[in-house]
């Protein structure tokens, strides 16, 4: 069996989990295996959604003690379900939770782990993963020698394809005992906006913005395009009060949105590493020789303080982003 750890939020299957499930379905078809979805929590509301993405069976691990996320409890639940079903491949999305629980589950299963993969295939009955290394400066093909193989799929890379499966529901045993650590509280800061790693459109600013307050013009453009704001390391480290969580680059987030607009970012190697897998790149910079133009699909040489508000205006005039 290929087992996919699925995250539920507000009674719905999370999109990155739907992507992992779809990829699991494809691999299961390619290797003649069953696809199982696993949910863990105080309720299984939304677990049935897994059938839409091709799950043959939906395993639900439900207990009141699992209402809040616990690394050790969730890892134990994943490993125990994998063992019970004899899963040889365990997948999940490379989200904050997936990246926390699945490596721990892998160690429990004596399994190799490939994180944040952008491609998966079956070769001679074993899983092979394509993944960015050195923050996207290079790509590696990872092979497994362990019996059980664990991988997390990078959000926004794999398509979530609807393909109805039987989705037979089955409850599995919840982990017992005291949990070593548990989430007590969630402190939201993003105002409900999607995370950079899951955004379709990112409008990022660099040192050229000159101050944190000036990021407001990027916010306005991002809002008009249905996107979110990012920043270069230079801007985050400039002491402008920008959150470290919006930094894009080798020492920040590695992103691959459909559209990445870089304003006032020159294009240091470590920044390019974090965003060069974006589908379309737009660069706005005063300096026509800025390295960012070398990888941009569209370049605007000009003053970002004039260009960005004009872009917002043009986007609104054309009704762009209105459907997001």
């Amino acid at each position: 069996m290929i087992l996919v750890f699925c995250e539920l939020k507000d009674g719905k299957l999370r999109k990155p989990s739907a992507e992992a499930l779809s990829e699991g379905r494809r691999l299961a078809d390619a290797s003649g295996q069953q696809l199982g979805a696993l949910t863990v929590g105080a309720s299984a509301d939304g677990a049935a959604d897994a059938a839409k993405y091709g799950a043959d069976s939906i395993l639900t691990c439900v207990a009141p003690s699992l209402a809040s996320y616990s690394s050790d409890a969730f890892a134990a639940a994943i490993a125990s379900a994998a063992k019970a079903k004899g899963a040889t491949i365990v997948l999940g999305a490379a989200t904050a939770m997936g990246k926390d629980a699945l490596p721990r589950a892998a160690a429990r299963l004596d399994a190799g782990y490939a994180g944040d993969v952008t491609g998966l295939s079956m070769e001679g009955g074993k899983l092979q993963a394509q993944r960015p290394v050195y923050a996207g400066k290079a790509f590696a093909t990872t092979g497994f020698t362990s019996a059980v193989q664990v991988a997390t799929t990078r959000p926004n890379v794999f398509a979530a394809t609807e393909k109805t499966g039987p989705g037979a529901m089955e409850s599995v045993e919840a982990p017992a005992g005291d949990f070593k650590a548990i989430v007590k509280e969630i402190l939201a800061k993003g105002g409900g906006k999607v995370d950079l790693t899951e955004a379709n459109v990112i409008v990022a600013g660099g040192r050229g913005l000159k101050s944190g307050e000036n990021f407001k013009i990027l916010e306005e453009l991002a809002d008009a395009l249905g996107g979110v704001v990012g920043a270069s390391r230079a801007a985050v480290d400039a002491g402008w009060g920008l959150s470290h969580g919006i930094q894009v680059g080798q020492t920040g987030k590695v992103v691959s949105p459909t559209l990445y607009i870089a304003a006032g970012i020159s294009g240091a190697i470590q920044h390019l590493a974090g965003m060069s897998s974006s589908k379309y790149i737009v660069a706005i910079n005063k300096d026509p020789d800025a390295p960012i133009f070398k990888i941009a699909d569209y370049g605007i040489v000009g003053d970002l303080f004039e260009v960005v508000p004009e872009l917002t205006k043009a986007a609104k005039a054309m009704g762009i982003g209105a459907h997001h």
């Binding site: 400066k137 990872t142 020698t145 133009f293 699909d297 043009a314």
Partner: peptide
């Protein structure tokens, strides 16, 4: 339990085109 079978560099992105004109026409063209 895992090994790297191959490592490659990402395909170089082709340099695109620059949009000309004043800020308003650049914005509209983009």
């Amino acid at each position: 339990a895992t090994g790297t079978l191959a490592m490659t560099l990402p395909a170089a992105r082709a340099e695109g085109r620059k949009l000309e004109g004043d800020a308003a026409s650049q914005a509209k063209a983009l």
